[in-house]
Simulated assay, not measured.
Amino acid sequence: MTKYNLSYAIQDYTYIITGALLSGFALKSFLVPGHFLDGGVTGISLLLHEIYHWNIAVLIIVANVPFILLGAKQMSAGFAIKSIAGVVILALCLRFVPYPEFHYDKLLISTFGGFFLGAGIGLGMRGGCALDGLEVLALYTLRRTGFTMSEIILGLNVIIFMCAAFFLGFETSLYACLTYYTVTKTIDYVVEGLEEYTGVTIISGQSEEIKEKLVLGLGRGITIYKGERGFMKDRFTESHECDIVFTVITRLEVRRLKNIVMQIDPKAFVFTHSIKEAAGGVLKRHIVH
């Protein structure tokens, strides 16, 4: 293994171990003592623990391993190895780490339990593993049905929450929904971070000056599409050729870019959209798993 690959491996397993520790903290300190649930495979494990009182550490392994093995076929053996390592570390944390138990208000347990669990799962994802195997199942099902991945995950979680309502009560099911929402939002934040990329498209008659400011002033690469602007309702037949400017920036730079464009052309048409992944060009390089 080269020094370059070794440094990435160390970084990956640092993420995985930290993620497992945080997930264990969320489960053993908040969700298990508070008799709370989550969605996904973790939710299934918590539900079985509440109904049958089986060991949560064993349930986490037993519930996740089949989906991880499925992931080896869908993605790669490296993904499966990291995921099994992450789940085993999580189980060991649940079994041996003396986490404190918090018996707070239900809303606090649901919110902070979901936050720490989402942070743990998100760090695991940054390390290239799955501490919750539901998305692997969704990916497998996606290739065999006409449903989107989001619809599959939603459907599976609805089943889990309905079972929670039947066995543990409607109130517990509602809190499980809140916990799951907190988990997913925290995962998004941890995985995408503050530097979530935003695509910006600019249509303006002052495109030459805008291009110069973006490249030389903001330090961003740009792509130019040849187009036409005009076609107004009162003068539909009038149009003008123009350069349509596209660039990719972080969301922290959106306001600065808009200010630059508005100073040059207050009538410029600017619209943005989120980009989940971006690499190459002048962007910072990220590890791709």
Rank of each mutant, 00 (worst) to 15 (best):
L59F: 12
G146V: 15
Y104V: 12
G133E: 06
V136W: 06
M149I: 13
S110M: 14
I60Y: 05
G34H: 00
F112H: 06
A80H: 07
V41P: 01
I160M: 09
G34F: 00
G128K: 09
Q74M: 15
L123A: 12
T148M: 13
Q74A: 13
K28G: 04
E151Q: 14
M75E: 06
A57E: 09
G133H: 05
L117W: 01
I89Y: 06
I89P: 06
H103W: 02
L21D: 04
G43R: 04
A26E: 03
L37V: 10
V65L: 12
G34N: 02
A130P: 04
I81E: 05
V97S: 07
A72T: 05
D132P: 08
F25W: 06
Y99W: 11
I81K: 11
F36N: 02
K73S: 08
G71C: 07
D132T: 04
K82T: 08
L117C: 01
I51N: 02
L22M: 12
T111Y: 04
E135V: 07
R126Q: 14
G122K: 02
E135A: 07
G78R: 14
I109S: 01
K82I: 08
G40H: 02
C93P: 13
F102W: 14
L139V: 15
L69Y: 08
H53E: 14
G118A: 03
I61N: 06
A57S: 15
V65T: 07
V62E: 13
T145A: 13
G133Y: 04
L46T: 02
Y52W: 13
P66L: 11
M75D: 01
K73M: 08
E135G: 03
R126C: 10
C129F: 11
M149S: 10
G78L: 11
L92W: 12
A26W: 00
K82P: 10
A26S: 09
L21I: 13
Y140I: 09
T111Q: 04
I56N: 01
S110V: 14
S83A: 15
P66Y: 09
C129G: 12
L139R: 14
I61E: 07
G43S: 11
V87K: 00
H49Y: 12
V136P: 05
C129N: 11
Q74R: 15
L117H: 02
G118C: 00
F36P: 00
L154F: 15
E101Y: 04
I89K: 07
F116T: 00
P33M: 03
L92T: 09
F36D: 03
G120H: 03
